[in-house]
């Protein structure tokens, strides 16, 4: 620790040789993959990928009435077209685009007056956003469920304790895929049918997916929380209780703040898993990143590029999260 920062160890030549071998292997692997794709005449078209993130959409402005264009004026870069009809005059505003008509022209309903272009998020960006949204909500509820579950697991009250154990064991003992199906096809059907009988709109599948993820994560978080609480020395509870604090106060002010710091790393791992597991939600028609990629891949046939992009996007999400947690750990280090 007290070594000068500039200390320099001379590494043996073999060290650099092995570094070289590592990069050589990496390059070899990528090269071999590329060579294989050439062999099957796959044509890489990376330039086609950005349009799935963001693209320009052409929007037509059409006349809804019969009439004559009496005036075209410009204001703040917008064009205002006034169409004179038998009844009232109709006004159309065109944001900075190309006009297809000129003054004095006669138009009828459906006639294109002008069009303009608008940036729209592509399907991959939408999918990425949905993945973030679903993961964030599931994380939030996962923490809540896990906190309650973990504390209940340590309770001496059998109702709380056994409820928590049952929940944790069932969730951890069955595949997430099956749980998603149960949430959507069993609970979803039940709930939506009953809601329908009372004339209430059905809950969209997105929420069953979020519920499945939150409950799944909650069980693991509960075990992490339990371990965290148990890792805090008994003396901490004794000291706080001996000062007259209630069990709840002792938990809130003394045990949990210490436990949370300790469980931050395993918790982060759990939430990184959650982001990755959200890719399963595609099977109940939630168009998150993986599902969006699958849709684009089938229509565009740029399969190779798209799946690499998809993996990289997940990597970006999980990497950001782990960086954020590392920052938190440093900040809260005792």
């Amino acid at each position: 620790m007290n070594q000068p920062a500039t200390i320099k160890k001379n590494k043996p030549a073999s060290y650099y040789a092995w570094v070289g071998i590592f990069f050589l292997c990496l390059a070899g692997l990528i090269g071999a993959l590329y060579y294989a794709t050439i062999k099957i005449d796959y044509i890489w078209r990376w330039y086609r990928i950005p349009q799935y993130f963001i693209f320009k959409e052409k929007v037509d402005i059409r006349s809804q009435v019969d009439g004559k264009i009496t005036e075209i004026s410009y204001e703040n870069g917008k064009a205002i077209i006034i169409v004179k009809t038998i009844g009232e005059n109709k006004t159309y505003t065109v944001p900075q685009g190309d006009l297809k008509v000129s003054k004095g022209e006669y138009v009828n309903p459906g006639y294109v007056l002008a069009f303009y272009e608008k940036w729209k998020p592509g399907i991959l960006l939408q999918g990425l956003w949905l993945t973030i949204e679903v993961s964030a909500i599931a994380t939030l509820f996962g923490i809540l469920i896990g906190l309650i579950g973990g504390i209940a697991r340590l309770s001496s009250n059998p109702a709380f304790k056994w409820a928590s154990i049952t929940y944790i064991e069932i969730i951890r003992g069955s595949p997430l895929l099956v749980q998603i199906f149960i949430w959507y096809f069993v609970l979803g059907t039940l709930i939506n049918t009953i809601l329908g009988k009372y004339g209430i709109n059905p809950i969209p599948s997105l929420w069953y997916g979020v519920a499945a993820l939150a409950c799944f994560t909650g069980a693991y978080v509960a075990e992490i929380v339990r371990a965290g609480i148990q890792s805090i020395h008994r003396g901490q509870v004794e000291a706080s209780r001996s000062l007259g604090m209630t069990y709840a106060q002792s938990m809130r002010y003394v045990v949990l703040p210490q436990a949370l710091r300790r469980i931050l790393p395993p918790l982060a791992g759990q939430f990184i898993s959650l982001i990755k597991d959200s890719s399963l939600l595609g099977i109940i028609a939630i168009r998150e990143l993986a599902k969006a990629t699958r849709e684009v891949a089938t229509t565009s046939l740029q399969t190779f590029e798209l799946w690499f992009v998809c993996a990289l996007l997940y990597l970006a999400l999980t990497f950001t999260l782990s960086m954020f947690v590392q920052y938190l750990e440093r900040r809260t280090a005792v």
């Binding site: 003396g235 901490q236 000291a239 001996s242 002010y253």
Partner: peptide, 28 residues
């Protein structure tokens, strides 16, 4: 809890709250 507030206790292993400053330990 009310009773314990009237009975102070000092432990062999101190059991101070490590995540709180000395002042916070005394004020909590």
């Amino acid at each position: 809890n009310k009773l314990r507030a009237e009975v102070g206790m000092v432990f062999q292993s101190f059991n101070l709250f490590p995540h709180k400053s000395v002042l916070e330990n005394i004020t909590l």
